[in-house]
Amino acid sequence: MGGLTRGYFIQRLLMFFLTIWIGVSLTFAIPRLSGSDPTTAMLLTMMNARGYVENADKIIAAYKESFGLNDPIGIQYIRYLWNVIHFDYGFSFAKFPAAAWSLVTPALPWTLGLLTVASVLSFIFGVTVGSLMGWRKTPRWLNNILPVSLTFTSIPYFMFGILLISIVAFKLHWLPATGGYSRDVNPGWNAPFIKDVLAHAIMPLISIVITSMGGWALGMRGLMIGVNNEDYFLLAQAKGLSPARVFFRYGIRNAILPALTAFALGIGSLIGGSILVEYIFAYPGTGYTLYRAIQEQDYTVIQTITNLIIIITATGVLILDLLYPLIDPRITYKKSVAS
């Protein structure tokens, strides 16, 4: 019967928590499997900085005590889970008194804002271009133009970013080259700041959209060609329906389903996804934070971001799962099968 049933909802919700639990447990286990000791690593960085550290063994012991690393692994695990629920990941190793979570939160809106818009735009453009390319009735002039829009797909997006910076920012001085906003504006909900943020976001946005829409377009083209040969598509034309209705209701409506799944799975990579773009544009997002944390071996920050990726991916999949029975009536987890 399609649609959302209560059993289906509960099942999906359980799946959601199970996924997060397994993912979060893995981020707990993997650093402990690696065998390297974060406190010793910290001491080493201190030594590198100052040459000699007195009472190194006492410091290690004190650290272990305060981080709770001497407790049995089970206790550590339960305490970790408890902290994860409260978004409390402890202190950052690299920037010690700062909490790991407090290093990540300021970066979140930047990345989510930029990449959500970029992903949605590239999905919409890509799907539109791809569907038109895969449709037999597309006017010929349009079919000649469309592939041109995919030229930049073959350029890596960071290369395209560098190109944009050098031309648009340095040669033409149209847009600011790097950063999330200028230093001379006051962060907050005021017009100059918002305008400044938008100006800074344009180039990273374009470099992501232009270079990633091609993937969607090519995938969608293949899906659309497949639908073109389906009997129901033929019948829709034989019914004398308007081309627009055939295209949207019979074509895209069916062809887009696998693309939507891929899109939902890609939501998780929003957080860590465009590290290179954020790096090139010095954009203050989580990708850049993750890059720095990996460089500085800042375990707790890495853990924070990893867990965020897990939670956001799971949320994306959950939302898709809940929407799927509405867009594809064949998907339902009901046990009884209609005769």
Binding site: E230, G240, S242, R253, L257
Partner: peptide, 22 residues
């Protein structure tokens, strides 16, 4: 388009696949 279906209708070949699944 006006002529199709009103004057000329089709019963397609594949019974399993001739209706829009969604």
């Amino acid at each position: 388009r006006k002529l199709r279906w009103s004057k000329l209708a089709l019963i397609p070949q594949g019974a399993m696949n001739s209706l829009n699944p969604v």
